[in-house]
Amino acid sequence: MMLGAVLVLTILVALIAVSAWPAIRDWRHEKARSPEADSVAAPAVVPGPGTLEGVLARQLMDQEISRRQYMHAMEALAERDRDRHPLPDLPEDFLF
């Protein structure tokens, strides 16, 4: 029984290696073809967040604000959103 499990595991590892080999080979050829492209490549430009929630998330990830400050700001945003865009009242049929 243990020999069967080892045999199955060996076959699975071999199948994974065989199926991944073309991708690894292509990656190695691309890397060997353009070594100067890596040194000259411009740094990636990360677009800024488009919403206030995005700004807060970015500040939290960059550790510019604490988790407590983030939670407080999100609560304030939720209250502001509730006041600006209230949900419609439910009809009497939907109430229990």
Rank of each mutant, 00 (worst) to 15 (best):
P49F: 03
G4F: 08
V45A: 08
A32E: 15
A5N: 09
R84C: 04
P91C: 01
E30C: 08
G4I: 05
G48Y: 01
R33F: 11
L60N: 04
A37Y: 05
L56V: 07
A44V: 13
V55F: 13
V18G: 06
R82Q: 13
V13W: 08
M71C: 02
M61G: 10
I24R: 15
M1V: 07
D83E: 14
M61T: 13
P47K: 04
S39Y: 12
Y70F: 15
P88M: 00
E79I: 08
L77G: 02
S34N: 10
R33W: 11
L90T: 02
A32C: 05
L77A: 03
E36K: 08
L87Y: 00
A20H: 05
V55D: 10
I65Q: 00
P35H: 05
P35M: 04
R25L: 09
V8L: 15
V46Y: 08
A14D: 01
A23G: 15
F94S: 04
P86N: 03
L7H: 12
D62G: 10
V6C: 05
M2K: 10
D26G: 11
V13Y: 06
L3P: 01
A41Q: 09
H72F: 11
V13Q: 11
Q63F: 04
V55C: 06
T10Y: 05
I65F: 03
S19P: 01
A73D: 08
M1Q: 06
A78P: 01
A44E: 12
I11G: 09
A14L: 13
L95A: 03
L15S: 10
D83Q: 13
L12G: 13
